[in-house]
Design a protein around this nucleic acid. Sequence first.
DNA 1: GGGAAATAGTTTCCACGTAAACTAATTTTT
DNA 2: AAAAATTAGTTTACGTGGAAACTATTTCCC
Lengths: 157, 157
Amino acid sequence: MNQTAAALDDDVIELGEMAGSLGFLLRIAQVQVFDEFYAALSVHGMKPGEFTVLWVIHLNPGLRQGTIARALHIKPAHMTKLVARLADAGYISRIIPTDDRRSVRLMLTSTGKAFVRKNRDDLINFHKAERSRLDDDEFEQFAALLRKFTGIAEARP
Amino acid sequence: MNQTAAALDDDVIELGEMAGSLGFLLRIAQVQVFDEFYAALSVHGMKPGEFTVLWVIHLNPGLRQGTIARALHIKPAHMTKLVARLADAGYISRIIPTDDRRSVRLMLTSTGKAFVRKNRDDLINFHKAERSRLDDDEFEQFAALLRKFTGIAEARP
DNA sequence: GGGAAATAGTTTCCACGTAAACTAATTTTT
DNA sequence: AAAAATTAGTTTACGTGGAAACTATTTCCC
């Protein structure tokens, strides 16, 4: 048990300035939240990105898939596959408008609507569970700083 | 140019409760920081994870690679490849101690030491660049909340 | 109006990271 | 002390997401 040198002192790691690096801290935080998401919601066989897209379509029916991709920082190539998965699963329908047949507009199917309605609470509860080490005030402050940092507007009430 | 319906109003997206989701906000924030990292440091052909590992070895010479992997939430399989890349590049050396020949302890080579010394400032400057939309107070508050959220201790002065 | 440029999405191919199975070394059990 | 269990790291096989090239459609401009 007693180590011979400081260099061999496992489990205690000096991070130095790294502990002030947002990139590093954000990555760790995201991994943790991701794990929580899977623990809470993967029952439905859905991944975070897919759920997010479904949610955005729910709130913004008829939007172009490219617009959604840009807003969520999903690359077009990936968006194509993600949309295909959601369409194959029967949650969304791809609509090609006649006035611009290059674009694809997305709508929830009735199955998709039912899914969102049914799992809305799981989503909300998941958000609450995320708070883990923070109290309510800290949580709100944290979310506000994240929104400011990312330049994302707060939800309109 | 004038859209016909609200549903077609591209570029304005309603996120609803999603704007309060840490998972969502963390992902966006991380993507942004990641992009900044590449813009600032990819000249050296090094990725964020690699740079972080190099930095941790610099501060904790002789640590086991598994210990570092756990601390940085890097999976063992990935750590093997990452360490191989850094070793191939000549930045670190893998040392198999005689008292436990299963383990691998990592040290910086002189090349690695020189690299860290030379790029330390880029790293620090990068951290400053990260602050973009936040002032100094907000930045510190943000980092503190991230540390609390992730359970990571602040750097010892 | 017809070719050039721009735009939307898709396809192909590749890199990164992971889970699962595996090898090697060490410790525990009996 | 041999067998079983544990631990450290590696290898293999695969899935996800991304860059670049491609197709289809629309807009620009001469």
